[in-house]
């Protein structure tokens, strides 16, 4: 019993970690290569969820909706890059923050106008809404397993793309010295747009995967973007490996904190005190983790060597 609870929380933590990785991968790529701080990354996560919700209701198939929503989100990212972001690359980080803050306001309002103020729930197909019995007594919702599977697949795909393809080589080269890459005849503008669209699609995928569990709602992006920032700061900004490990770490610590901290506190203090303190501390846990890590390693756990 105790063991199965632990296993379920472990998988919940992994699921959160995987989603955070999908979000932070795009963020860390944009920052690593283009030195661009994108607060509006959460808005793309939200857009992905809304595209998927509408398409699921329209086509009747969740899987088909994801396949259609992915290029749509990438297109939204591409347009965003062409219209606004591209003009900000040679500005300082403060300008990035302000302009993308403006973008959040715009995108949130546009979503509000199109989809209305209420959230949209996404119905899951029957074969995904069931449960899977792993071994005796340990039962897990199959959809959560799917999220973990899809997320790991995306992570593996990203790994192959970045480390074993020509495009990945250009991305890595761009991250270490983008002027030199440009001088060697690579169309850096197109590379930037492509990477931005890729990051948008990954963030959108995270939104699509989480939407059936929560729902597609305005503000879902603003809530998760801070946690994503914590992930890429802990991992070392610009590092893909750092983002992956930090995402899993943050996902697990957050989940375990929320489910087991009050039991742990009860060992140390009175039940009443533990029940007051535990929710507050567990909500702050990942920030405390970040503070501790940064106090010893200001550049994060795995800072990219070339920067």
């Amino acid at each position: 019993m105790e063991f199965s609870l632990l296993l379920i929380q472990l998988l919940n933590g992994l699921q959160l970690g995987i989603l955070l990785f999908l979000l932070s991968a795009g963020l860390t790529l944009t920052f690593g290569i283009m030195d661009f701080v994108n607060l509006a990354h959460g808005a793309l996560y939200m857009l992905g969820a809304f595209f998927c919700a509408s398409l699921t209701l329209y086509t009747g198939s969740f899987i088909l909706a994801i396949l259609l929503a992915l290029p749509l989100t990438a297109l939204a990212g591409y347009l965003l890059e062409k219209l606004v972001v591209q003009h900000l690359y040679d500005r300082n980080h403060l300008d990035h923050v302000l302009a993308t803050f403006g973008l959040i306001l715009c995108i949130d309002t546009i979503v509000h106008i199109i989809w209305g103020p209420q959230g949209i729930a996404i119905p899951l197909p029957a074969w995904l809404s069931g449960q899977v019995e792993l071994f005796d007594g340990v039962v897990l919702p199959s959809y959560r397993l799917l999220i973990i599977g899809v997320g790991l697949l995306a992570a593996a795909g990203l790994y192959v793309l970045v480390n074993h393809t020509r495009l990945g080589m250009l991305i890595r080269a761009g991250a270490s010295n983008r002027k030199m890459v440009g001088a060697l005849g690579v169309d850096i503008t197109a590379l930037f747009s492509g990477v931005f669209a890729l990051g948008a699609a990954l963030a959108g995928l995270a939104g699509m995967l989480i939407a059936p569990i929560t729902e597609a709602s305005i503000g879902m992006g603003s809530d998760i973007i801070i946690t994503t920032f914590v992930v890429i700061i802990i991992g070392g900004i610009g590092s893909m490996k750092g983002a992956f490990l930090a995402a899993l770490l943050v996902g697990l610590i957050d989940t375990f904190g929320r489910s087991f901290l009050d039991d742990f506190f009860k060992l140390l203090m009175s039940t009443e005190a533990a029940e007051t303190a535990a929710p507050a501390v567990s909500a702050m846990l990942i920030y405390i983790l970040m503070a501790i890590i940064l106090a010893f390693r200001p550049q994060g756990l795995f800072p990219p060597l070339s920067r």
Binding site: H93, I226, I232, I233, M290
Partner: peptide, 20 residues
């Protein structure tokens, strides 16, 4: 102890910690 974009994000994260 941090600089640049890390500073922006860490101050933001600390504020969010207080919020929660």
């Amino acid at each position: 102890r941090t600089r640049g974009v890390n500073f922006i994000m860490i101050t933001m994260a600390f504020a969010q910690m207080m919020y929660y």
